[in-house]
Design a protein around this nucleic acid. Structure first.
Lengths: 186, 186
DNA sequence: GCCGTTGTGGACCGCTCGGTCAACCAAGTC
DNA sequence: GACTTGGTTGACCGAGCGGTCCACAACGGC
C-alpha cells in the first residue's frame, strides 16, 4: 500500500495532476485499473492520498532536521540548503509536490486544498516550536515575534522550491538563503 | 491580437496549461480552431505567447511601482501587498501565471523555461536597479549586497504568490511581508 | 474437492483531446 | 461579374482520456 502510494506520489510529483493519466499510474504501480479504482475511488482521491503521503514524509523529515541539537539558525540554513540540493540533483522531479498541488489543484479541488492548508499549517507549527525553544534557550532575541517568523520561514521554503526550478544556480540560491536568514534576530 | 492574447492568458492563468483545452481557448477568443492554429502553430506556442504577454504586463507594472518617488522600503512593501491583494480579491485567478508556468511547464517545455528564466532575471534586475538607486541616495546602508537582496526580493514575490493561495489570510501575509522587509539594512 | 469471498486485470464505454483540412467567405483588382 | 487571395470555419481524425464492469484467479474454511 505504501509502495503503491510512493509510486503514485513520485509520478504526480514529476508530471503534475493533469499530465498524469490513470494508465501511467497503472504502469507505475503494476496494478490494473480496477484495483486502483477499487482501492481509491477516483483519480482525484488517489491524488489526495498521494499528497497526504508526501506531506507525511516531508514534514517528518523537516521536524527531524529542526530537532537536531545545533543552533537554530544553522539548522534552518541546512534545511533550506538541503531542499535546494534536492531540487537541483533531481532534474526530473525538481519542484515540490506540495507547491504544485497549491498552484495546480487547490483552486479546483477542495480536498487537496484542505490537505495543502493543513500541511502549510503544520510546517509553520514546526518552525514555531523550534523558534520558541531557541528563544527560551536565549539563542535568539526575546523580542523575536515567533509567529511571524514561522510564517516567514514557511514562505521561504515555498519560495526556494519555485526559484530552484527557474534559477537552478546553487550560488544564487545560497545567497538568497543567507539573506533570508539575516532576519532572525540574534 | 492583443485582446486574443489577453483572453488566452486569462484562461491559462485560471486553469493551468493541461486543464485548458483548445476548445476552451476557441470559446474564450471567439476564434475557430483553424484560425488559432494558423496564427500560433500549436497549443504549446500559444501558451508561450500568452506567458510572454503576461510577463510584459506584470514587469511593466512592477517597474512602474518601483520608480515612484517614495522610499524604497515603502515602495517594495506596497508592491508586495498589492500582489497579495490581487490574489485575494480574484479567487478564480489566485496565483500568478509565471509561478504556475515555472511549476507546471518549465520542466517539460524548453520554450516556457526560457521565457520564465528571462522573466525572473528581469524581475531581479528591476529590484537591483531600485536598490542601487536607493543606496546611492543614502536611503539604505552602503554595506547592502544589492545582488543578493534583489534575488531575495524576487524569491519573496514568488513565495507570496504561493502562500496567498494556501493561506488566504491578509493579516498573516502582511506579517510575512513586514518580517521579510526587515532584511533591508537601513 | 468444493464452495464463497475477495481482489485483480484489462477489454470496453462514451467522450474529449490536440491537430488537420477542404470548403467557404468577404474584399480588392481588373 | 470573374478571379485571386488571406483569413475563417467547423466537421473530422486517430489517439488517449477517466471510469466501469465482469470473467477469473487466489485462497481460507469445511
Amino acid at each position: 500500500m505504501d509502495e503503491v502510494l510512493s509510486a503514485v506520489m513520485e509520478l504526480f510529483w514529476r508530471q503534475g495532476y493533469e499530465a498524469t493519466s490513470v494508465q501511467d499510474l497503472c504502469a507505475a504501480t503494476g496494478l490494473g485499473k480496477g484495483s486502483l479504482y477499487a482501492a481509491f475511488g477516483s483519480k482525484q482521491e488517489l491524488y489526495g492520498q498521494a499528497l497526504r503521503h508526501y506531506v507525511k514524509l516531508t514534514t517528518h523529515d523537516l521536524q527531524a532536521q529542526l530537532l537536531r541539537s545545533v543552533p537554530l539558525r544553522q539548522a534552518v540554513r541546512d534545511l533550506l540548503l538541503d531542499r535546494i540540493e534536492q531540487s537541483l540533483s533531481a532534474p526530473e522531479r525538481p519542484g515540490c509536490l506540495l507547491v504544485s498541488a497549491v498552484v495546480e489543484r487547490v483552486p479546483h479541488d477542495q480536498g487537496a486544498a484542505r490537505i495543502a492548508r493543513d500541511a502549510i499549517e503544520a510546517l509553520k507549527g514546526a518552525f514555531a516550536t523550534a523558534l520558541h525553544t531557541a528563544r527560551a534557550a536565549g539563542e535568539i532575541s526575546t523580542d523575536a515575534d515567533v509567529d511571524s517568523l514561522a510564517g516567514y520561514l514557511t514562505a521561504m521554503v515555498q519560495a526556494l522550491r519555485v526559484m530552484s526550478i527557474s534559477v537552478p544556480d546553487e550560488k544564487q540560491l545560497t545567497a538568497i538563503v543567507d539573506t533570508a536568514l539575516s532576519v532572525i534576530p540574534e
